[in-house]
Amino acid sequence: MNEPRGLPLTGVVPAPPYGSPYPPPRPTTSGLAIAALVLGLTGCLPLTLLPAIILGIVALAQTGPGKRPGRGLAIGGLAAAGVWTVGWVALLGNTMADPDRYTANPPSAGCATPSPGYATVCTLKPGECFEQPEVNATYTSVELTTCGGAHSTETIGAFIAPDGPWPGNEKLKAEALPRCDRIMAKNVDRPRLDAAGVDAYLSYAGPDRVGWEHGVRTVHCTIYSPGSQLTGSVLASGADLALPTG
């Protein structure tokens, strides 16, 4: 019995199997790394610095060997943001350390001339009466009134605080009240004030930090009555109204 002869296979190229996979696509550069670099380079605008740092840190986590490309861009963005941050801190530090150099006000700003009928800490005089909005308020000028009519505050004397750096509100208050208490004991007619039956308190009016840094040292001792209950001078006969007092 003859065996069947097969067809020759020489030179036959097999077709590739169906569904053979294509090479995987190359990963794209991290968009966060690009954004971090752009924001870091525009650090001349302070608002871009914090987003640049945040995006740079996140981009570092998603880039590197075996991950998405762009690690160098993220590092560059962080470095640029760091350089701009150091520059801004140095600029702000110099500004805060030397306020007179950068202020828009001239050295005389602490004793600016008030409007007619008003007084500042530089122009107020012992014996004058004025309206004070609140006992702890901060104000640059007060409206003068006659001491014979209703008013809230009367200046009973003044002293000059010693030179030095700005002491702060609490330290200035701690120095002012004892000295004003001694001036009150000498200048105020306490029996007449007590007989009037009004709420009255010992207070003071002094410079704020800006005025102090412009050389203002005068602190005025006052009698303050909420609701403008004072209707006459609280000063005793022969009160010492010199500046400084006593």
Rank of each mutant, 00 (worst) to 15 (best):
G6A: 12
L7W: 14
G11T: 05
G11E: 13
A15N: 08
P16T: 11
Y18R: 10
S20Y: 08
Y22F: 02
P25E: 07
T29G: 09
S30R: 03
L32A: 15
A36L: 08
L39W: 07
L41M: 01
P46S: 09
T48N: 14
L60C: 11
P69N: 03
L73D: 07
I75L: 09
I75D: 07
L78V: 01
A81L: 09
A81C: 05
V86S: 10
V86R: 09
N94D: 11
A97C: 11
R101I: 11
S108M: 10
S108C: 02
G110D: 00
C111H: 09
V121K: 00
C122I: 06
C122L: 06
T123D: 11
K125R: 13
P126T: 04
P126G: 02
E128L: 14
F130E: 10
E131M: 02
E134Y: 04
N136Q: 05
A137D: 09
A137E: 11
S141T: 10
L144M: 02
E154D: 07
A158W: 02
A158I: 00
G164M: 10
P165I: 14
W166H: 00
N169P: 04
K171M: 08
L172R: 12
K173T: 08
K173P: 01
E175A: 10
E175V: 05
E175R: 08
A176L: 14
R179G: 10
R179V: 15
R179D: 06
R182Q: 12
K186C: 04
V188S: 15
D194V: 05
G197M: 15
G197A: 06
D199A: 13
S203C: 08
S203Q: 03
A205P: 02
A205M: 13
W212Y: 06
H214C: 05
G215C: 02
T218E: 06
T218Y: 05
H220A: 11
C221V: 09
T222M: 10
T222Y: 07
Y224G: 06
S225N: 10
Q229R: 02
A242G: 07
L243I: 07
